[in-house]
């Protein structure tokens, strides 16, 4: 499915289940998403982490609703499954689509100005470097006798200085690679939203509505 449509579908669905309180629909969504990511081949470590980490917030919400909520155990379960529904819905997107494709379709089909599509993409592609950079900033501070914590303004200060510098470098490099804001470009890979994409999208979104309408528990 077209990544842009998929993202839209995922976000819309997640939004809807935030407003509704159907335990069964949540479970169905989890199951379907689960099957989808399994079909798309996922390794077990990822799967384990996907189940493991959300357990804490999900359990936390569950217990507090159970103890203090006015709606009892059913609603507690709704919240519990809601968290997992988010996670697995999200996984259907993040584990099976590339951000490059998302940027391409946002540019070509959703008419997002190319400077947004490629500017943000370029920044996202630096993500591994940024992780290293955070580590480097902390270490380099230690070597100058300063300790940085998450709440230290100077940590963010340096992070912003690096961002300013990197954004300048990247913008210059992209410009010298021929990129000009708001100018037409050709496309090696044309990504279209096909009739099939539309049909799938419509079908799934309607299916969610129908389920939410009929399954109230």
């Amino acid at each position: 499915m077209n990544p842009g449509m998929k993202l839209l579908l995922v976000v819309l669905t997640a939004l809807e289940i935030s407003f509704t309180q159907s335990l069964i629909v949540n479970v169905i969504l989890i199951a379907i998403s689960f099957v989808y990511v399994m079909v798309k081949r996922m390794n077990f470590k990822t799967l384990f982490l996907l189940i493991f980490w959300p357990l804490f917030p999900a359990l936390g919400l569950f217990v507090s609703q159970w103890l203090y909520g006015s709606d009892g155990i059913h609603f507690a379960w709704v919240l519990f499954t809601r968290i997992y529904a988010y996670v697995f819905l999200g996984a259907t997107f993040t584990l099976t689509s590339s951000i490059t494709d998302l940027a391409l379709t946002l540019e070509q089909d959703f008419r997002l100005p190319s400077k947004f599509a490629y500017g943000v993409l370029a920044a996202f592609n630096l993500m591994p470097k940024i992780r290293e950079e955070v580590q480097i900033i902390k270490t380099s501070a230690l070597m100058r006798g300063e300790v940085f914590h998450v709440w230290s303004p100077k940590l963010y200060f340096k992070a912003i200085l690096s961002s300013i510098q990197w954004s300048q470098n990247l913008a210059e490099a992209m410009t010298s690679h021929g990129f000009v804001e708001d100018e037409p470009r050709t496309h090696y890979r044309v990504i279209r939203i096909t009739v099939l994409d539309w049909a799938m999208f419509a079908f799934l979104i309607i299916a969610v509505q129908v389920m939410l309408f009929f399954i109230r528990y």
Binding site: T100, Y118, A122, N125, H177, F179, V180, T186, H187
Partner: peptide, 16 residues
């Protein structure tokens, strides 16, 4: 480089 892989960057350049 704006893109993730070498080939993507080259394509990006040519598209520009």
């Amino acid at each position: 480089f704006a893109m993730d892989t070498v080939i993507h960057e080259l394509t990006f350049v040519l598209e520009n």
